[in-house]
Amino acid sequence: MKKIGMGLALVVGLTACGRAPGPASGEAAATANTATALPDNIDETGAPYARATRALAEQRLISPAGDNAIEHYLAAREGAAETTQAQTALAELQPYVLIAAEQAIGRGDATEAERLRMLIERIDERAPALPRLHAGIAALRREQAAQATIAALETPPPSVAVVPRPTASPPSPTVASEPAPPPASAPSAASPAPPPAPVVVETARPSPAIVRAAPLVRTPRLLQDAQPRYPLPALRARIEGQADVAFTIQPDGSVRDVRLLSSSPAGLFDASALAVAQRWRFEPSDQAHASQRTVRFRLPAGAEGGAD
């Protein structure tokens, strides 16, 4: 038997063929299926289903484009032999594609978000999240277009920056060298003309900046922690990882505006980390606080993970 790192799609296929134990309730049954074997008679480089299994084991869930587990499962679904297994795997992996699409919108990558939205549409053209993703991508592109227009309007034309203002030409030497004839009644020894008064230019001195130390804001103390659920695909494949989440601590100590900063491996633990952050409770304070934590998923602790 040949071992691979990730066994989600294979577990689904073997269960359909009667070669894996049937569904069990509770996390003890999930722990029993953490190690899965790849049959020797599967061509890992030929059929689309085998290529999808290899891509999933190599953590190529949604990228690169054209050579990832989702697209190989879509190709396998078109065949006659493994249609059911491929559709089951796609249904289980669809939430992770949705999370990746929302992350792309959050970081302003409209092109990647549209590619992932099209993958979800190929998986299920009636998926409930499709209208929301379409509206989010359209709003992102409108915002980026507006920002580009504002930046173009705020940029001064090149002529203003590089063309110097013309200076007045000096007086003609001919006019300056011709002395005016003295008047008839003027004395022979005329007193010299007084020099012009100097021009005094006063510049305002900048007032010294007032530097005030920012008050020290103490992050509220965590009162109620929670354990995240270990995702079943990662548990079966015995994969560990972590996810960094950012959130806002409300004045009453509850958590709002939870968002994902990063995760490793990408897409596997995102949903569990976002869900557990909603259950955290902190010490009440008189204002909101921005904070972040790292949710870690470690084996062999069964289906339990931990947070820093």
Rank of each mutant, 00 (worst) to 15 (best):
R256V: 08
A129F: 08
L38G: 08
E102Q: 13
T15E: 11
A16Q: 12
S25H: 10
T219E: 08
R60P: 05
G18Q: 02
T219G: 09
S263L: 02
P284A: 09
I4D: 07
E178D: 11
V201I: 11
P215F: 03
I42H: 03
P157F: 00
G7C: 15
L119T: 15
G7P: 11
A89Q: 05
P284Y: 07
T15F: 07
A75C: 02
Q227K: 13
F269R: 04
E143G: 14
Q103E: 14
L38T: 11
A29V: 08
L140S: 06
I105Q: 09
A24F: 08
P131A: 06
M118G: 14
H289G: 05
P195D: 12
L56G: 14
R107N: 11
V12D: 14
A204I: 11
P215G: 02
R281G: 11
A127I: 14
L56E: 15
L14W: 02
R293I: 04
Y73W: 13
A37N: 09
P64H: 13
A37F: 06
P39K: 02
E154Q: 02
L274S: 02
T174A: 09
A52W: 02
P233Q: 11
V160C: 01
A135F: 10
S63T: 09
V295H: 00
L232Q: 09
Q87N: 12
E154F: 00
A148S: 10
R141T: 15
D43P: 04
A146I: 04
Q227W: 04
L235Q: 02
R279Q: 12
A113H: 14
A301L: 12
P206K: 04
P157T: 01
A168E: 14
R60K: 13
A127M: 06
P183Q: 08
A277G: 00
Q59D: 12
T149A: 03
A204P: 07
A168M: 08
T36W: 05
E143L: 09
A180L: 12
E240F: 03
R141S: 11
A184F: 01
Q242N: 15
D286K: 11
A168V: 12
N68Y: 02
Q278Y: 03
V245L: 10
T88G: 15
A186R: 13
P265S: 06
A288E: 07
L130T: 02
K2Y: 10
P251E: 12
L116E: 01
R60L: 14
Y73N: 12
I123S: 07
A138E: 10
A135L: 10
I4V: 13
E143Q: 13
F247Y: 14
G79E: 09
R229I: 05
G306E: 10
Q87F: 10
L61V: 15
D67P: 08
L8D: 01
Y230S: 11
P182R: 14
L98K: 03
E92L: 15
G306R: 06
T83R: 12
A273W: 00
P95N: 07
G22H: 05
A113P: 05
W280C: 06
S291K: 00
L61M: 06
A243I: 06
D257E: 13
A226M: 05
G5C: 03
G136K: 01
P179I: 06
A89T: 15
T248Y: 00
A91V: 12
S177G: 07
A189Y: 08
R60I: 11
